[in-house]
């Protein structure tokens, strides 16, 4: 299939990109989600703005408290980053398993977040890690908690004209891991769970079990209240109602949530 006619601009600065998006263009980062949708004509933007020419959007660096990941940093770089591995292992886990090597060579962290697919791996791990995104728009820059970014299928709280410029991951000594289940290796994740275990307690989030990534609040509450892992697993699906699909029933996905929460918790604990 073939995309519809569109206008293309390549921004050389964040401001230029913001101006283009404010004028109605759709931001194109790695294109690994957007391009297939455009080819199937499920998306038909009349204009796109390519973010690949903005140097400050690429790269991983740190300050005292946070790791700053440029929105255009590709999954392969994130998976290979010692810094991310050291402070947020679950994010590296997730990045290393997205799509195929070809997809990881182009797909970006900002693109994953902005696309907001409910089966995407990256948002859930960033929520569990307590990360934030920096969004820049016509009215300036603001910080959004990853948890507050995605509202439903392919929908975010980004204002018109805003683009994600950076992801900020707290530097922590948490032990963390991401565990996911998929059918074929290349397939979208059926259910995935990211768990962070630290001095301030346990944080966990899941993908594939709702119209957006969700915090596993009941699971966290049991563990943070001193309860056992078994008790936490028993409550992991509380308040969560996954959608049945070709990849499994509601019951199956709720069950997988427990299996993967246990697996992620176990792997995090052993790190």
């Amino acid at each position: 299939m073939i995309p519809s006619t569109l206008e293309y601009t390549k921004a050389s600065s964040i401001d230029e990109a913001v101006a283009a998006v404010a004028a109605g263009a759709v931001p194109l980062s790695g294109g690994q989600s957007l391009m297939p949708m455009m080819r199937l004509r499920l998306a038909a933007p009349h204009a796109i703005v390519d973010l690949s020419g903005i140097p400050e959007l690429v790269g991983i660096c740190e300050d005292e408290d946070e790791i700053a990941v440029g929105a255009m940093t590709i999954h392969r770089e994130i998976a290979a980053s010692e810094l991310i591995r050291a402070h947020a292992g679950l994010v590296a886990d997730a990045a290393g398993g997205i799509g195929s090597p070809q997809v990881r060579n182009r797909g970006t962290i900002g693109g994953s977040l902005g696309h907001a697919d409910p089966h995407s791996d990256m948002p859930a791990t960033l929520i569990a890690a307590g990360a934030s995104v920096i969004a820049k728009g016509p009215n300036g820059e603001r910080r959004i908690l990853a948890e507050d970014l995605i509202t439903t299928y392919l929908t975010t709280t980004l204002e018109p004209g805003e683009i994600i410029t950076q992801v900020r991951i707290p530097k922590s000594d948490d032990h963390s891991a991401y565990a996911k289940f998929h059918r074929r290796a290349i397939d979208w994740t059926v259910v995935g769970v990211g768990v962070c275990i630290g001095d301030n307690g346990v944080r966990a989030a899941a993908t594939g079990v709702a119209d957006k990534p969700v915090r596993l609040s009941a699971f966290e509450a049991v563990l943070n209240g001193g309860g056992s892992l078994d008790d936490a697993i028993a409550k992991v699906a509380e308040g969560i109602e996954p959608h049945a699909g070709l990849d499994g029933s509601v019951e199956y996905k709720k069950h997988l949530l427990g299996v993967l929460a246990r697996k992620a918790h176990g792997e995090a604990s052993s790190r």
Binding site: G31, M35, P36, R39, G99, Q102, R106
Partner: peptide, 22 residues
């Protein structure tokens, strides 16, 4: 749908899918 890899080429040394690249 970027699933089959038939269109794989290298861009600046990285293997990528030429069907999901403009």
């Amino acid at each position: 749908t970027s699933t089959c890899g038939c269109c794989t080429v290298h861009v600046d040394g990285d293997a990528v899918l030429s069907c999901s690249t403009l």
